[in-house]
């Protein structure tokens, strides 16, 4: 599904990614772990198409299509979803209106019929309920006045409604209490299937107790320095990043 080869990228002329090689096959969940400043968020933004990040080399394809050549909305239409580390507040934009506009944009691009307000609300309420989210979150402005945990849950709600084929979760676990963590994990696990994949970017192993990854990659200094099975996350938790980074050097 996702194939990254020799990807180098930076911001403001400062190189951050120094050659990423990563393949996420259909149906697999991969975790990317790494210390602060290793390039985790840069990788997620480059994959989602945020302005300001310059790709200086390498390729990233999604189902064989050049992901880096697509506009951000085209990537979303193709099935890529980024759960933001810091979800953006949109004062004056109602959450339900935002979600419906997004869902209908995707449906339109895929040649599917758009949902009217009633059909959409029915769907959104059911998803909100499944994620144990209060229904009034749909009525409020997008992320405005939300707590940190509510913002993260709202990302998962968007993901549940938009049903991406590749979900990239950028430190979605940061700032979550254990109950919220479980809700987020349940949301991701509900999406798992033979044709959907996830890239879970995290600093800590604890999210991976709930979303068990097929592969774990360690990102340090803009490179993947080690890959392994789920046991690698436990090793990192026990020994810290320093030992792994030192081994690889």
């Amino acid at each position: 599904m996702l194939e990254i080869k020799g990807l180098t990228a930076g911001i403001d002329g400062k190189p951050i990614l120094h050659g990423i090689d990563l393949v996420v096959p259909d149906g697999e969940v991969h975790a990317i772990m790494g210390p602060n400043g290793s390039g985790k968020s840069t990788l997620s933004y480059v994959l989602a198409g945020r302005d300001g990040y310059a790709v200086t080399g390498g390729t990233a394809t999604f189902d064989g299509h050049d992901l880096l050549a697509m506009a951000p909305e085209q990537r979303a239409v193709a099935g890529v979803f980024l759960a933001f580390q810091y979800p953006v507040e949109l004062p004056g934009v109602g959450n339900a209106n935002f979600l419906r506009t997004a869902l209908n944009a995707l449906r339109r691009a895929r040649g599917e019929a758009e949902l009217d307000a009633m059909q959409f609300l029915k769907l959104a309420r059911a998803e909100a309920k499944r994620l144990s989210m209060p229904e009034d979150m749909l009525k409020r402005n997008v992320n405005v006045g939300f707590s940190g945990g509510e913002k993260k849950r709202n990302e998962v709600l968007q993901m549940a409604i938009l049903r991406p084929r590749l979900a990239i979760l950028d430190e979605t676990d940061s700032g979550l209490d254990i109950d919220a963590l479980r809700i987020v994990a349940d949301g991701v696990n509900a999406l798992r299937g033979p044709t959907t994949s996830a890239l879970v970017i995290t600093h800590y192993q604890r999210l991976l107790d709930h979303i068990v990854p097929d592969r774990v990659h360690v990102l340090a200094g803009g490179r993947i320095i080690r890959s392994g099975g789920p046991e690698l996350a436990h090793e990192l938790e026990a020994g810290g990043y320093a030992a792994v980074v030192a081994d690889a050097a």
């Binding site: 909305e73 990537r75 979803f81 980024l82 506009t101 997004a102 944009a105 968007q158 938009l162």
Partner: peptide, 15 residues
Amino acid sequence: EQIFYLRSRGIGEST
């Protein structure tokens, strides 16, 4: 950042 957030959800730039 707000524009990017909307676009990342599939909403075209002018919308």
